[in-house]
Design a protein around this nucleic acid. Structure first.
Lengths: 403, 403
DNA sequence: CGACATTTGTTTGGCTAAGAAACTAACTAA
DNA sequence: TTAGTTAGTTTCTTAGCCAAACAAATGTCG
């Protein structure tokens, strides 16, 4: 059944074509190498239709024929695979102390991953645009040199990004009301591909949804573990941004009215009791943002050494985290909640407690089938998701123009 | 853009037709009376296509031509309206002390609204099926007498209902693992229309989404105010049920580890500090479920009289409720949170406090545009939503067969 | 080895349904 | 009466899916 998801929009033949092109593309992505006959059999599309769709996709160099099948009864099949080579999707993540750029091909293979230090915490949005544009230009020129067409660029920002891609507030960067997408487009002088901006947690969720081990889950939540705690929500296979794009702001869910003071001014917020800050408040109260990674390494070292107070601290944080995740699981019933950011290195000491708390608090029998897992995508999840955002629009049928 | 929302499903012409029929149907629902020319102009469909679609819908008696327009320049337009008369959708709500059945026509006009007392709290699911089937048969025969074709029947159950319509747990009814949809279909002996089961909060949310004053909101949350507190979540225009169908279980979000004990055994759950039970625990600790309505009336009377202790109690509950709703608003960023059930009569004394707490706690600027409102649909919201569930499948293109 | 079975992918023709443009219809205004 | 305006239909074209026949390439078995 076809359903337009942004209100009553009529459909026509080009929509059918786009839908079916996307179906074939996604099928090959998941089942490569496969033959036209496989596609027809599995999708229910007619063989003739599949041939036509595949021809179109080969013309656009999204698919490529590889060799034939080995000895079997009947005519050997021509196998098809994704042809990543002529395209690239760019994701950029801006953060307190660095900017990361990644480029991936259609398959999601990482083509480059550049990190460049940048004083995000003390720079204006304008300065960030200049820095991002410079980095982006280098990435674009590298891609061009490799004869790849850039399909799009998405920027991941730690903060509230509205549905139009304007950054409303980015507390750690000190930005307010910045039209990042517009300014960056201008700075790149009409680059000929879409430039988008989205929240980092949203994009990390997208990365998990496309590349992670739980990519089959239609409902998942990604939780960032930085100084701030945010979430990206995928429900029914798509990112859900809410009315204005501010969904997933779980950091200030109040878990304990008698808890410690949060930087938002209230008490006992999830962020204050289970954020990375809650750990560092005990171990390195004066750490600057750029030292976070080092400090966390130190916490990991001490936990490995079995230091009692650190272990107790982590258990405590884990329990609070579990309580917060129980709220998430109760409200959204996702298949999986994925912990990211600095929760990843700390996971060995956090997750058991968190899981126990969570499962004990989820109302649905068997926890509603919701698991608590740790991200395997590393720190670059948001940048990777930003690139995935570009691929998503290809997957939903907006194919690059024919050669 | 067409997007199939349950995985990669190919599209063909019948999908285009179904989509466009649904577009026209929805347009007329929202803009009746209107002419074919209006439809073409607003939807972007070609005039010829609209004529063909409208002819089809008139054939199926979903639309009807009314008179012509009054004197204007040019040929007068034939106006179109929804033709509710030949169809009916049935919604049934089963509860602790009664079963409600409503029937609506295509426009959502209520055709009947029958309430029948039923000891849900002490009856088995099997007994409930017998009672529901008896009631349903009377409704069906009444509809048949009125020459209406029944398009479907949906049952609203206060409890966890999985994605297949099985009731996993319904604490207040004492049910577990009941295949209500299957059993009711059997009891009705192959009724020739779909029989579905869903959670009451989900369906009430659907009722608000279709009939309520905020029907334009693509993102809304409906909160039940009964002994239990649950939510139905609409995001991007559709009900979001989560992985197994258990989304919206906000009643046991833990707001205060030092709070009063909840019936789930833990402390400080939203339900325990802001549920209706939290009020009655102070005013009528021994009330049985069937006396709830009376007891709430009594609370309203005393609040109207300005009794200090009652007002303080309601303010306190309102503040806790506001904290819970802040968690909802932060996580989902809906356009509106709608309070239902017994919160409605108590709203005059609850909402101001709740709003204040909520707005103060929502991180997004301006509360993320999220308002707190009170349901205007009355106690029958879930039953009405159950009927709306049936209309939804018509609206998404599954039209009844041609005459 | 050759006839036959099996499987793949293409070609042909038919059908559905949307769109463009011309046309008919029914009115107002002057 | 004539011109202008808007509504809705008719006719024709086109996109694109499907079914069925067919061509191609291989294995199998007598």
């Amino acid at each position: 059944m076809i359903t337009s998801h942004n209100g009553p929009q009529p459909a026509d033949f080009t929509d059918v074509r786009a839908t079916n092109l996307a179906v074939v593309l996604r099928f090959v992505r998941e089942n490569a190498p496969c033959s036209r006959a496989d596609i027809a059999a599995s999708t229910g599309l007619n063989k003739a239709t599949v041939s036509s769709l595949v021809a179109d996709l080969i013309d656009r160099r999204l698919l490529r024929e590889t060799g034939l099948t080995e000895h079997r009864v009947g005519r050997p099949a021509t196998m098809l695979v994704l042809d990543g080579s002529p395209y690239a999707a760019i994701g950029i993540e801006v953060n307190v102390d660095y900017i990361t750029a990644v480029a991936v091909d259609l398959k999601g293979e990482e083509l480059l991953n550049w990190r460049r230090s940048f004083p995000g915490g003390t720079s204006s949005a304008g300065q960030a645009v200049v820095a991002m544009a410079a980095l982006a230009r280098r990435v674009i020129s590298r891609m061009t040199k490799e004869a790849r067409q850039v399909l799009g660029l998405t920027v991941a920002v730690p903060g509230l990004v509205d549905v139009n891609g304007n950054v409303r507030v980015a507390p750690n960067l000190g930005w307010r009301d910045a039209d990042l997408a517009g300014d960056l487009t201008k700075a790149l002088r009409d680059p000929g591909f879409p430039v988008l901006v989205d929240n980092d947690a949203n994009l990390a969720a997208l990365a998990e949804h496309r590349f992670g081990p739980h990519r089959n889950a239609a409902n998942l939540v990604y939780v960032t573990g930085e100084v701030g705690v945010g979430a990206g929500i995928v429900m029914d296979g798509r990112l859900r941004r809410g009315g204005q794009g501010y969904s997933g702001e779980i950091g200030h869910i109040e878990l304990d009215p008698a808890g410690p003071t949060c930087r938002c001014g209230r008490r006992g917020c999830l962020e204050a009791v289970a954020g990375i800050g809650a750990i560092l408040a005990h171990t390195a109260p004066d750490a600057s943002p750029s030292e976070l990674e080092l400090e966390i390494d130190e916490v990991v070292r001490r936990a490995r050494n079995g230091e009692r107070d650190i272990l107790a601290l982590l258990e405590d944080v884990g329990r609070h985290l579990g309580r917060g995740m129980a709220a998430v699981a109760n409200m959204l019933n996702p298949e999986v909640v994925i912990l990211g950011g600095y929760y990843v290195p700390l996971a060995p000491w956090l997750v058991a407690c968190a899981e126990e708390e969570m499962y004990g608090r989820v109302l649905a029998p068997g926890g509603g089938g919701c698991r608590l897992e740790v991200s395997t995508l590393g720190y670059g999840a948001a940048a990777l998701g930003a690139a995935a955002r570009v691929l998503d629009s290809v997957d939903s049928g907006r194919l690059p123009a024919q050669r």
